[in-house]
Design a protein around this nucleic acid. Structure first.
Length: 576
RNA sequence: GCGCCCGUAGCUCAAUUGGAUAGAGCGCCAGACUACGGAUCUGGAGGUUGGAGGUUCAAUUCCUCCCGGGCGUGCCA
């Protein structure tokens, strides 16, 4: 993970051998962790498992190991504390190693050049029959962060926008438009207009079953593949939606490697169905074609073709898996989709498993919780804006940006480019909030807390970056190379350095668990440590030896925070 | 009914996958340099980790049951 850790592990392994423990036994058990309490040391080794393997009591083994690891140029001390061995690095070595790696852009602080994973990430995937609202944001920002995190680790990433541009929801939209729509109004404000049509359809369909029947007919006509009215309508509505989506995507800093919606798989479903049939797992049930998954513990069958002959979500997702498998050769296919669709992805994976397709093990659902807002009575329920039911993402971002603009007017009235900065900070506050907690948790959207920008927020981390940038601007010297400074003077920055050292494992965990909050948490922690450090440690005006060392520290902190925010899709302004 | 998820300080969440004295932010109380950004920092109060069993040297974490909340459950996505 770092040169320091490698060195420590080697010393520990040698110590094991000196105690007569077989290296092959010891090596896999030498896990180094940050201690629960940093006062104990920089790195800890819990001797439990190794002790069991060699038949000793953990505290006794820990004591022997501590005694067998003598101090050297890197290790300051090794001390047993019960069943743990706590190690401390020499402060100058710690600073030199961490800051040097950050300055050079070495992994894990910089982007890794090696990494064999090929990761498909299916995210955002809005339904083009509906407006881009707050509910779409979670998949979008989580997926975006995962793309960036995996790329940082050296993986080949395919970010895919699997647009909902096919199927019944779209057919309903089409039906509404064909009945009541006007092209002039559509072009004026496509998303809002479509939203109106959508609402009208929902209202009227309640009392008029003929609407849904008409929609089903239109979908059949669309799926017939003929060049008809439905197809032209589909093209028009799809184009307009895609254009409109560029707004939120640009604001959120999101890009895709492939925009292949459900419609893209229109001509690939027949092949997929053949493959399912050939595997001998397709069965007829009530006129539909299904795959039963009872032996995999799933009671509901996966329906691949409806009684009326048309396809479903599952059919297209299955075709998509096969397409991605042959086009990208992925080691993982991640679906960043709400937790309420767990069954769907269990079924998808189940069908592939039953077909004995190796790609089954690559398929992984990355679920997340809902977005909730607080009601008058203080209860949490599905998100509604403060005004009422308009839930367009743009409006939410606008409100956050407006609030930031006000804060800037109060605190930094002379800021150049204030509008651009307000946009960056406001949008990032919303994004950061979404990525702050474990993704499976519902996001509780508390406007009052969100718009104060104090504490664990995006602006808090950005503020740290701006403050560090400010110091670098005011310093009367350029940032030197680590090799040219006296790292011993950074002994007082140990907390900052140790937090920096955690960056690699945070990013690694974020990828392994598909959990961007690991990165968010690290950014908050590092921002907090550097803020605390700056309180009592000045840079400007110090004697050159101290100033230069601190300049390196400040510069590296700024770099690493910027990298962390970048992994989350968030910009780090120089001033705010 | 069945399946899955969640339950930790007043509120919102952590706890690096089973390890040391369960930590942060908000809120509350008390404070901070006539020097680099106060969107900050320092200190304090606040806990039977929903409940009961079990496994383990060790449980917020794993198992069983119960309680509370959410989501899903055959032709929507």
């Amino acid at each position: 993970m770092s040169a320091l850790h490698d060195h420590l592990r080697a010393r520990l392994l040698a110590a094991c051998q000196s105690l007569g423990i077989d290296a092959a036994v010891a090596a896999p058990l030498l896990r180094l962790d940050p201690p629960k309490n940093r006062d104990h040391g920089d790195v800890a080794f819990g001797a439990f498992q190794l002790a069991k393997a060699v038949g000793k009591a953990p505290p006794a083994l820990a004591a022997e190991l501590a005694a067998a690891v003598a101090a050297d140029a890197v290790i300051e001390s090794a001390a047993a504390a019960g069943p743990f061995v706590n190690f401390r690095f020499r402060r100058d070595a710690l600073a030199r190693d961490v800051l040097g790696a950050i300055q050079r852009g070495d992994a894990p602080y910089g982007r890794s050049t090696k990494g064999g994973e090929v990761v498909c990430i299916d995210f955002s995937s809005p339904n083009i029959a509906k407006p881009f609202h707050i509910g779409h944001m979670r998949s979008t920002v989580i997926g975006n962060a995962l793309c960036r995190i995996w790329r940082h680790l050296g993986a080949t990433v395919h970010g895919i926008n699997h647009l909902g541009d096919w199927g019944m929801p779209f057919a309903k939209m089409m039906t509404a438009y064909m009945r009541w729509g006007s092209e002039t109004e559509l072009h004026q404000s496509p998303m809002r207009y479509m939203f109106e049509l959508y609402k009208r359809y929902s209202r009227e369909a309640k009392d008029d079953p003929a609407l849904d029947e008409a929609a089903a007919k239109h979908f059949q006509a669309l799926e017939s593949g003929e060049d008809n009215q439905e197809r032209r309508m589909w093209q028009l509505l799809r184009d307009e939606s895609l254009k409109a989506f560029q707004g939120p995507y640009a604001r959120l800093g999101v890009t895709f490697d492939h925009v292949t919606g459900e419609s893209f798989f229109e001509d690939k479903m027949a092949g997929a169905m053949q493959r399912v049939t050939a595997a001998g797992v397709l069965e007829e049930s009530d006129g539909a074609e299904v795959v039963w998954l009872k032996e995999l513990g799933i009671k509901e069958p996966c329906i691949l073709r409806k009684r009326d002959g048309t396809t479903l979500y599952h059919t297209r997702d299955l075709a998509a898996v096969f397409f991605r498998e042959s086009a990208y050769r992925p080691t993982r296919i991640l679906y960043v989709v709400g937790a309420e669709q767990k069954l769907h992805f269990d079924q998808l994976k189940g069908v592939l498993t039953k077909m004995k397709e190796p790609v089954a093990q690559a398929v992984e659902h990355v679920p997340f919780g809902l977005v909730l807002s607080r009601t008058e009575e203080g209860k949490w329920e599905k998100f509604a804006s403060r005004a009422g039911n308009a839930v367009f993402l743009d409006e939410i971002l606008d409100e956050a940006v407006a609030k930031v603009r006000e804060v800037i007017r109060q605190k930094n009235p002379d800021l150049p480019d204030a509008d651009a900065v307000a946009e960056q900070v406001g949008v990032s506050a919303i994004v950061f909030n979404d990525l702050k907690n474990s993704r499976i948790k519902d996001v509780k959207f508390d406007w009052d807390a969100m718009l104060t920008f104090e504490g664990e927020t995006g602006p808090y981390v950005q503020y740290a970056c701006a403050r560090l940038s400010s110091i670098l601007r005011k310093a009367e010297a350029p940032v030197p190379d680590v090799a040219a400074v006296d790292c011993a003077v950074l002994a007082d920055a140990e907390r900052v350095l140790l937090t920096m050292m955690d960056f690699g494992s945070a990013v690694q965990r974020a990828a392994e668990q598909s959990e961007p909050s690991c990165v968010t948490g690290h950014a908050i922690a590092l921002a907090g440590e550097i803020h605390s450090y700056l309180r009592d440690h000045y840079v400007v005006g110090q004697e050159p030896r101290v100033r230069d060392a601190r300049l390196v520290l400040v510069d590296c902190a700024r770099k690493l925070l910027t990298t962390g925010l970048g992994l989350l899709g968030i910009a780090a302004p120089e001033r705010m």
